[in-house]
Design a protein around this nucleic acid. Structure first.
Length: 620
DNA sequence: AGTAGACTTTTTTTT
DNA sequence: AAAGTCTACT
């Protein structure tokens, strides 16, 4: 992905400004990663101790790429906000009153815990959807709100507060931190202990923040605190690529940078080194429909040879079929690994996959049902979490009878401590289970994680349990083998392994130089990547922009998402749409996305365009 | 305690 | 349409 070109004047200015606050506004493909890495190189070349440099990225993938470009050796922190938070927490567990054996709750388990709290409060989980409640809690936490400070107005808010309070208590009891805690705890620590904050301020004197438009309030606070003393901070961002507001991100942080850091130098990078002029012009027209933005006009020296192809098809199957055929055709000149199919929702990958299989085109899905969330993987991880943190009842509950060892619902409740009328047989089962965990704990102290997991699988007979000879069973076993592979590669202790599993997701495995396959992923996942040929599928009202964003009046974020999608393409761009689509097993007729109409027709080449696209609704 | 079949939910995006 | 959850029966 490295761009081989000499630096332009603006880029030079950015990488040669080594002191003070700097805001770099960098459009898509303008070389922002290059600016950060080159500036870090300059800092090190000027004699600065690398360990006083901090670089925070939005994804692990971006962090990995940055580290590659810095030729690995340099000893500095490059990582996500969550990894940074975890580092600070681990160095201050005692001050924070957190058990050393804490575990990180993944989103799944966090929602489970919320559900338990809802049930414990005698509320109906159907009325108070655990996932939605968890979202609400998360949004509030990311604004540094607490259940105590929260002023509940109205029935729902009152219940929310109760559930939230119970959730926090339960987390404390079971030695859990959720993703939000990884950011909040350091901020609270710094607010309460100025000398601790100062220690970190003195440690990280030169701070770099990537994707600043996607920082939320806690992240913003954390950065502000760390940068306050020396004010050597470079943030890089692009408001037009802000696509995480639903997660609490606030692109106004970019707009406020000059207010927060008076005298900040502002550098705007507008020359794009990625796409053709045709693709860029389309992107510029599209995004100019947004009101909330800073005027910016990306330009390029790349002359495009082909228009953007807009392909209409009857339904999602035909859409996938055409896309697969086009990929096969393109593959004569463009390697598969330089092509990507991008979609709004994960569910769309299915039809694409089927068509690719039929055509025998190798592909890989990035993201989707995430690896660490697969049932068999979670089972094994639950054992490991319980070994590490005996207070973790979420994991205990999960594996008490997995594989089946005669502990049913009733016995399970008693063993988890809710009842005292335990029978002799149940008591024995309980003791056997405890013995098993103790034994495994001993193994984990004596063996490396890889060996430890192998022994665990053997002891509980897990392979026989999941690998039943069917194709699915084989696949499950393969996932376990992959997990073993991760453990072997990491070659560290159990807690290190569990941390890795908690903070790194599958998309981190994406490798631009790896196997020759087409990539399939959501547009969110594609942020920061680039491909010779890009297929953006499903450009229909209701899907993209998504119906939920239309009803909540947030189409501008969808448009930014479309802008991100379009600007991933270097030379070939395809926009496809279907007249009807199966959603929830129901055939739905769709009209073309408004985004298509926002691109001037002279940049487009229509294929299979129906006579009257507006009246493309057919009653079946 | 374990399972087959009914019933329900899913699909917005994720560190 | 498919996967997950619940229920009632063995």
């Amino acid at each position: 992905m490295r761009q081989e070109y000499s630096l332009n004047a603006k880029q030079k200015e950015a990488i040669e400004t080594l002191e003070g606050p700097v805001l770099v506004i960098a459009g898509a493909g303008a070389g922002k990663t290059k600016v950060i890495t080159e500036r870090i190189k300059n800092l090190i070349a000027s004699g600065l101790d690398p360990s006083s440099i901090l670089a925070v990225t939005f994804t692990n993938k971006a962090a990995g790429e940055m580290r590659n470009r810095l030729n690995a050796a340099a000893d500095l922190f490059i990582g996500t906000f969550h990894a940074l938070g975890l580092l600070i927490i681990k160095e201050n567990v005692i001050r924070l009153g957190i058990s050393k054996n804490f575990s990180i709750l993944d989103e799944d388990d966090a929602i489970k815990l919320v559900k338990e709290c809802i049930v414990a409060l005698s509320l109906n989980p159907k009325e108070f959807d655990p996932g939605r409640i968890k979202n609400n809690i998360s949004r509030l936490k990311n604004k540094l709100m607490t259940p105590e400070k929260f002023i509940a107005d109205g029935f729902f808010a009152e219940k929310l507060e109760k559930i939230w309070a119970a959730y926090e208590v339960e987390k404390q009891k079971q030695h859990f931190l959720d993703f939000d805690d990884l950011l909040i705890k350091p901020v609270l620590l710094f607010q309460n202990e100025k000398n601790t904050l100062e220690k970190y301020q003195n440690k990280w004197k030169y701070i770099h923040i990537d994707e600043y438009q996607d920082t939320n309030e806690v992240q913003y606070m954390l950065v502000k605190m760390l940068a306050e003393k020396y004010k050597n901070i470079m943030v890089v961002g692009d408001i037009d690529q802000a696509i995480y507001s639903w997660r609490g991100a606030d692109f106004r942080n970019v707009l406020n940078f000059q207010r927060d850091y008076p005298g900040a130098k502002v550098i705007t990078l507008e020359e794009n080194y990625r796409s053709t002029d045709i693709i860029l012009e389309a992107a510029n027209f599209l995004i100019s429909n947004n009101r909330a933005r800073l005027p910016k006009n990306l330009w390029t020296k790349n002359k495009g040879r082909e228009q953007i192809k807009v392909i209409f098809s009857e339904d999602e199957r035909k859409e996938a079929e055409i896309v697969a055929k086009e990929v096969a055709y393109l593959s004569q000149t463009v390697p598969l690994k330089n092509m990507a199919m991008l979609y709004r929702t994960n569910a769309q990958s299915r039809s694409l996959e089927e068509a690719l299989l039929q055509h025998g085109i190798p592909y890989k899905i990035i993201g989707g049902v995430r690896f660490y969330e697969r049932r068999e993987v979670k089972d094994i991880l639950a054992y490991l979490r319980l070994i590490q943190n005996q207070n973790d009842t979420i994991s205990k509950k999960r594996i008490l009878n997995v594989p089946p060892r005669g502990i049913g619902k009733a016995a399970s409740l008693k063993i988890l401590g809710n009842f005292s009328n335990i029978t002799r047989a149940e008591k024995q089962k309980k003791e056997e289970f405890e013995l098993l965990i103790q034994g495994l704990k001993q193994d984990s102290l004596e063996l490396g994680t890889h060996e430890c997991i192998k022994k665990l699988i053997k002891k509980i007979g897990y392979r026989a349990y999941i690998d039943d000879g069917t194709e699915k069973g084989m696949e499950r076993w393969q996932n376990i083998e992959e997990l073993l592979g991760v453990a072997k590669k990491l070659n560290g202790g159990l807690s290190e392994f569990l941390e890795h599993v908690a903070l790194f997701s599958v998309d981190d495995r994406y490798d631009a130089f790896g196997e020759n396959r087409v990539s399939l992923m959501t547009i969110h996942t594609a942020k920061g990547l680039e491909f010779e040929a890009v297929f953006v599928v499903g450009l229909e009202e209701g899907l993209f922009p998504h119906a939920l964003s239309i009803s909540s009046d947030d189409v501008e974020e969808e448009r930014r998402l479309c802008y991100v999608a379009v600007t991933r393409a270097k030379s070939h761009l395809y926009l496809t749409l279907a007249g009807r689509r199966t959603i929830f097993g129901e055939r739905i007729a769709n009209t073309p996305s408004r985004f298509l109409k926002e691109i001037p027709e002279n940049l487009l080449m229509f294929i299979n365009k129906p006579e009257e696209i507006e009246e493309n609704i057919i009653i079946e």
